[in-house]
């Protein structure tokens, strides 16, 4: 089964999710402006965007077009300079930094290109990390972490340190970590950027499965093959959205037929 076939097979379930899904993310005229001395950089320049629960979105665009900036805002790692961004009903710009931390902890799971695992720490403890910061702390966090490592196929690597794992395995640990607190949104900024194509495909298959289970997946990628796993593809250029393929049921089918 090639990448495109898989994308098609999954469309039905995504549609189902989309139908059931309510609005999860709404950006209204969001801008992010960096002041660099004399220069001002408009990393995002009036972006408006709706993402419903259960969608699988790929964000694409040239380097420097604002993809990561957008992801960081959706990930509640940063606040917009202007405009409003609502995640799961909460206005990012109005939340305190503790509330943002809480949102990152419970609602959002983040996967990075560079994995960002803790050095000299076994996989099980890596995955437990978000649960250590959860308030209130769920019971038996070790069992939850174990379950997620099982889900990503690493139940036999609980005690392995990052250095003892392959790149793909490290990224799986990072995904298990992102999932452990049962988030609604899984954000991945070039999750396969540091992996070979075979491993990338495995990781994408994992994302697809997770999306089928109902989690909203948003990922940034430069590669069309990776983007093809998503039902919706949003293109950025110079901090603006230039194209939004596969939005809504009709356009999803249209996008798939392209």
């Amino acid at each position: 089964m090639n990448v495109h076939d898989r994308a098609k097979v999954d469309e039905a379930s995504v549609l189902r999710n989309r139908d059931a899904g309510s609005l999860l993310i709404r950006a209204t005229d969001v801008s992010k402006i960096y002041e660099m001395g004399e220069q001002t950089v408009r990393a995002l320049d009036g972006v408006s965007l709706d993402i419903a629960e259960g969608e699988f979105v790929a964000i694409m665009g040239a380097s420097g077009s604002g993809k990561s900036t957008m992801m960081n805002l959706i990930g509640a790692l940063d606040r917009p300079t202007s405009g409003t961004l609502t995640i799961n009903g909460r206005d990012i710009g109005a939340l305190s930094s503790d509330d943002l931390a809480d949102l990152r902890n419970k609602t959002i799971g983040f996967v990075f290109q560079q994995f960002n695992l803790l050095a000299r720490t076994p996989a099980l403890r890596q995955v437990m990390l978000p649960l250590l910061y959860a308030q209130p702390r769920p019971p038996d966090i070790e069992a939850l972490a174990r379950h997620r490592l099982d889900q990503v196929g690493l139940i036999s690597r609980l005690d392995h340190h990052p250095r003892q794992l392959s790149g793909g395995q490290q990224q799986r640990v990072a995904i298990a970590r992102a999932l452990v607190n049962n988030p609604k949104i899984l954000l991945a900024d070039e999750p396969t950027g540091a992996l070979d194509s075979k491993t990338s495909e495995d990781i994408m298959a994992l994302f697809t499965d997770l999306n089928k289970d109902g989690i909203t997946v948003i990922l940034v990628t430069h590669e069309a093959e990776i983007a093809a796993f998503a039902q919706r593809r949003i293109h950025f250029r110079d901090g603006r959205i230039t194209e939004d393929e596969g939005r809504g049921p009709a356009s999803v089918l249209a996008g798939g037929a392209r």
């Binding site: 930094s97 503790d98 990152r104 960002n116 803790l118 910061y133 959860a134």
Partner: peptide, 16 residues
């Protein structure tokens, strides 16, 4: 610094 960033990204508060 990176580790601190990661801890914050997964929900660590400034106080933590």
């Amino acid at each position: 610094t990176r580790e601190i960033g990661l801890r914050m990204a997964v929900g660590g508060r400034s106080g933590d």
